[in-house]
Design a protein around this nucleic acid. Structure first.
Lengths: 256, 256
DNA sequence: CCATCTTTGTGCACGCGTTCACAAAGACAT
DNA sequence: ATGTCTTTGTGAACGCGTGCACAAAGATGG
């Protein structure tokens, strides 16, 4: 997985397990596709295959929402789409602000999946005065100074941070102070937020590193007996002769 | 968290738990920051705070790698940076191809965090012939026709898919057929891959939906007794009068 | 060399999530 | 109405991940 929840143990809201909540959007997407093809009903087996999960898991997930299936038949597609949408809160309109309009911010602003799910881009915000007024995805970029006003006027409760790592915490603090209680963070930093604020993070670099780990393992298994990969005991305490290339955790996601 | 592993149960490679692997990049980032400030050693408590995790968890994570700490003192920063880098396979060079150079693909190509961690963008690939030759992040975009040749010539084993959902599976199949065994997928689709291929997905829309769920719950708890939120038993079997807005799962991440 | 103090490494228990496997429910045919 | 057949919903077992709490290790000072 690309991210993970930060802070806030495992909320277990109203009895619906966190793991189940994370899968509901997946089911919703599969169901929407079926709905478009005018498929009236679907069995747990079919739907599970489409969503890429185990059918028993899917049935248990749905059981947390209620008894929405019909034994011997399956689930009514339209009805289930509605129930899941309602459960996820997608039947209402969620204004969202995106802070940091670089490459990634622009990609997010253009992302079609937002509007189609009840999310509305209320504003694009960037610290660069030169960006102000310039339209991205048909929406004019506004300067950071307007942040508080926008959030309060539009009743925004969800913010997306797509700034460089250095600016993220500061932006986060301002968002929270202005009333935002849910944050999606693309900057490679750990955000500190007060109790009651949800943070989810998406970190491209971390995802790649996890893939690299498994890739290395695969390669290592093939060449099992080559030249003693992983020497038994790398002489402790010797410094690694820091020459693994010029690192430096350059966070630069984009010049926001 | 923004994504989750797909297929492949919980590999448990060489005894290192998957959950631990997912946190190693986090520790590495915190350690790199300390290294830059020339901090020689760090305690589990300090490092855990910097990485945003529990100190006991951190110590247990490190114990899977070996006994790299010194009781009464803490961990040697440089040494730990090296050990984690090696464990994650970041001491070697990983050529990566990015397929689908729209807004997101361009954002990824410009992402500094890649190069700084041993990842090298070997090629940018797009299906639009008009893009061919045009430089993005200093690298000329190549046409999809070149895909197989590039992968084989450069020995690429990691591919990033940033195309629209409709093209993702097809691109995936070609990547796998050409020899790629790890895929980072940004397209909102479930990818089918053969045994032995790792897929990680990052889905912006899913992240927002999860946030919306919690946001709705928070709002619902405040207005606890308003107008009977969540009616006890919504008359079963009645169709939801499909007017939740013009949905359609528009996947369009970018025009690749 | 001994005592004290700090911090690691880990045994243990607990809880969440997953999966199996089956009984109950209902559709459908006769 | 009755029987058969399909598919749901869930009880129960299991395994992974987390966090507590403490013993062992080693540094440091006298």
């Amino acid at each position: 997985m690309a991210t993970g929840r930060t802070h806030r143990p495992a909320t277990r809201s109203r009895g619906i397990p966190e793991a189940t909540v994370a899968r509901l959007p997946l089911y919703l997407r599969a169901l929407t596709a079926l709905s478009e093809r005018s498929v009236p009903t679907v069995s747990s087996e079919e739907l599970a295959a489409a969503a890429g999960v185990n059918s028993a898991k899917l049935r248990k997930d749905f059981s947390y929402l209620g008894s929405y299936g019909t034994r011997g038949v399956g689930y009514d597609v339209e009805y289930l789409v509605y129930q899941i949408s309602r459960e996820l809160g997608l039947t209402q309109d969620w204004p969202v602000v995106i802070v940091g309009i670089g490459n990634l911010g622009a990609a997010l602003a253009n992302y079609g999946g937002f509007a189609s799910r009840g999310f509305r881009v209320a504003a694009l915000i960037d610290a660069d005065p030169g960006m102000a007024g310039k339209p991205v995805a048909g929406i004019p970029v506004q300067h950071t100074d307007e942040l508080e006003k926008i959030i309060q006027d539009d009743g925004v409760s969800i913010g997306v941070i797509a700034t460089p790592a250095g600016a993220a915490q500061q932006v986060c603090d301002r968002l929270v102070a202005a009333g935002v209680t849910s944050i999606l963070n693309f900057a490679p930093t750990v955000l500190n937020v007060p109790e009651g604020v949800d943070v989810r993070k998406v970190d491209l670099s971390i995802e790649l590193q996890i893939l690299a780990f498994h890739e290395q393992r695969k390669a290592g298994e093939e060449a099992a007996a080559d030249a003693g990969v992983v020497p038994p005991a790398v002489a402790r305490k010797q410094r690694p002769s820091a020459d693994q290339g010029p690192d430096g955790d350059v966070p630069a996601v984009m010049p926001a």
